[in-house]
Structures are given as C-alpha cells and as structure tokens.
C-alpha cells in the first residue's frame, strides 16, 4: 500500500458517500445516470466475488470490497425504489450494448489466463473504464449539473487519477506492471479530462457547472 492508492481508495469511498448524501438530502436522484450506477454494480460484483474463492488479502481489502458491493446496490435501491419518481429514464439514453459488448470482447481477447474467473476480472476492468460514459453523456445532454453532482464526479475521477502514480510507484519499488489495469485505467482517467477542465475553471471558483453552448 502506498499513499497514492490509499488516497485513491479513500477518494472512491468519499465519492460514494457524496452521492448517497446528495440523493438523501435532496430526496432526489436528478442528474444521476441510473445506467452508470447499474454498471458499477456489475463491475463490483464481477470483480469482488473473488472474496468467495480467492485467498484472503487483508481486512482492508475485504472491507472495501464489501463496501463497494453493498453501497452500489444501495444506490440502485435509492434510485429505483425509494426515490423512483425523481429518476428520469428519458434523458439517460446511452446504449448499454455499446459498453457491454466491447467489454466482453476485450475480456475474451485480452486476459491473463483464459479461465472463467480471469475473463470475469478482465471484463470488470474494461467495463469500469467505460461505465462513466452514460453519466457524462447525460451531463452533456442537460448541459449543467448541481454542484454536489460535480463533487461526486470529481472524487470519482480523482480516484482514477491517483491510481496512475500508484502504478508508477509500484513499477519503481516492486518492478511490477499490470498492463490490463494500467491501459484501462489510463483510458478511464482520460474520459474525465473535459469534466475536470470545467470543474477546475468553473465549479471550484464558485460558478455553476455549465457546458459551453
């Protein structure tokens, strides 16, 4: 464990708490893509079911995995049951096939071992890289976002960005590289570049998050 990974994970944890806080205090999931949230459940379940068969890593690792599975399912419950009327599928129109299809194909081609569990792991890595797209697409369609929604996205993007110095650190300190995670992680972080530009130049200066017309 190094500080980049620790702060990355904490940022991920914070992003989920911010999202739950936003939904509960505003009693609304306006502006949040249900598709992106559903994809995260798929990501966490396919990656962290290794809790059932892989050898124990650490209490930290187990706790985080359980938290990510549990909290992502809870968010789906909030969106589909508790605050269902505030969720508007008509603007959440990104096609899931465009993300699921390529993730399955990539996982079948690029994996470390052609076994069920390793293909599943690779699938979860590729799907995570793409899962934010319905949310970003929705943001683009509406052209604006509540400040708290942008804080959620910023924390989520920071988590991805922090994993990059983590890999550099591990490369120099342990001599290890995980090409699948690194390539997918760099792509995933790249998807946030436009968002971060507006977040830093507008939201952090107290202005509203608005996309240029």
């Amino acid at each position: 464990m190094n500080i980049f990974r620790l702060f990355g994970d904490l940022s991920h944890l914070a992003s989920i708490l911010i999202l739950i806080h936003k939904i509960q205090t505003s009693r609304s999931c306006r502006g949040i893509s249900f598709k992106t949230q559903a994809l995260y459940v798929a990501v966490f379940v396919t990656r962290y079911l290794d809790l059932l068969y892989a050898e124990h890593v650490s209490i930290y690792n187990t706790f985080m995995k359980l938290f990510f599975i549990g909290s992502s399912c809870y968010i789906l419950y909030l969106m589909k049951v508790r605050f269902r009327p505030t969720q508007d599928p008509s603007i959440d129109t990104f096609r899931l096939e465009y993300l699921l299809g390529p993730s399955v194909v990539l996982a079948l081609i690029f994996n470390y071992t052609f076994s069920f569990t390793e293909v599943l792991w690779a699938f979860s890595i590729y799907l995570e890289a793409l899962a934010i797209l319905p949310q970003l697409f929705m943001l683009q369609r509406t052209g604006e976002a509540e400040a708290i929604t942008t804080h959620y996205l910023a924390a989520l993007g920071a988590y991805r960005a922090l994993y990059i110095p983590n890999w550099l650190y591990r490369y120099f300190s342990e001599g290890t590289v995980d090409p699948i995670a690194v390539v997918a992680g760099i792509v995933q972080t790249g998807l946030y570049v436009d968002f971060f530009y507006i977040y830093f130049t507008k939201v952090l200066r107290g202005q509203k998050f608005e996309l240029p017309a």
Partner: peptide, 10 residues
C-alpha cells in the same frame, strides 16, 4: 501469467 500483485488492488 497472472501478475500476483494484482489481486490486492481494488
């Protein structure tokens, strides 16, 4: 081969 360090990342 599976990099053995990968399983500890989240």
């Amino acid at each position: 081969p599976v990099p053995d360090h990968k399983k500890d990342e989240l």
